[in-house]
Write a protein that binds this DNA or RNA. Structure first.
Lengths: 117, 117
DNA sequence: TGGTTGGTGAAGCATGCGCTTAAGTATCTC
DNA sequence: GAGATACTTAAGCGCATGCTTCACCAACCA
């Protein structure tokens, strides 16, 4: 099946690479040019541009060219979406877990009350 | 460079696949066996087991075999870690953004006060 | 005007990923 | 004990990903 990737696919895929996360980290501290993003990374500028394209494709970064330098910024809407997806699943499970704990605790006291051993 | 993937790499990589996210979704509603996880997915059981291995490798799922069925549960610690990483970068940027907004607003009022045009 | 800077685009290559088939191995049920 | 069930493991295949090199172009600057 040829699967057309949705926004969350692209986002998590983008964040899965440590170099790209480092770029996001850098951008969270403020806007940067492509060369500035590339500086701490052990790879060619060309590779960095390709990583940047992945981040933009995922909606995590927005950029515009001013003169000959490209200015890049973080796009927090997309980050929010990923955060929300995780948070919703996590809390759903944790609520279930809490109910189970409460149930077991209650069962425990009932058993103690019931047979007194 | 042979890169040894860390926990966040594995986690985001695991969540990047829609089938695996569907498995996480299912597990957020309660524990399940491998076949139960496989049921809604259009692929062989073998493929599902491989996806499950990715999720376990990322620390997102824990499982134990009871008799001949394997019981799988969500592991929320790992989800928390991913959530926190995203949240920290997002809020860092947003605080910066807010400060910038405040600064520009202030500049605006100062300009208005200053030249009165 | 000519050199440097900052980025772009295409081609190619090694590796990894997602899937399948096929052939097991325990465990339950009758 | 003879199925049936619930995985498990290994091999292999096609496509995607992450890089590199190379050629290129459009600002900027002396």
């Amino acid at each position: 099946m040829l699967h057309q990737p949705d926004q969350l696919d692209l986002m998590f895929q983008a964040l899965a690479d440590p170099n790209r996360r480092q770029m996001v980290q850098r951008l969270s501290e403020g806007p940067a040019s492509v060369s500035e993003l590339a500086a701490p990374l052990q790879m060619t500028l060309s590779a960095v541009v390709q990583h940047l394209a992945v981040l933009e494709g995922a909606g995590l970064v927005r950029s515009q060219k001013i003169g000959r330098v490209r200015n890049c910024q973080l796009e927090t809407q997309a980050l929010r979406a990923a955060e929300r997806w995780i948070s919703e699943r996590r809390t759903l499970w944790e609520r279930r877990f809490d109910r189970l704990g409460a149930f077991l605790a209650e069962q425990g006291t009932e058993t103690e009350e019931g047979n007194g051993t």
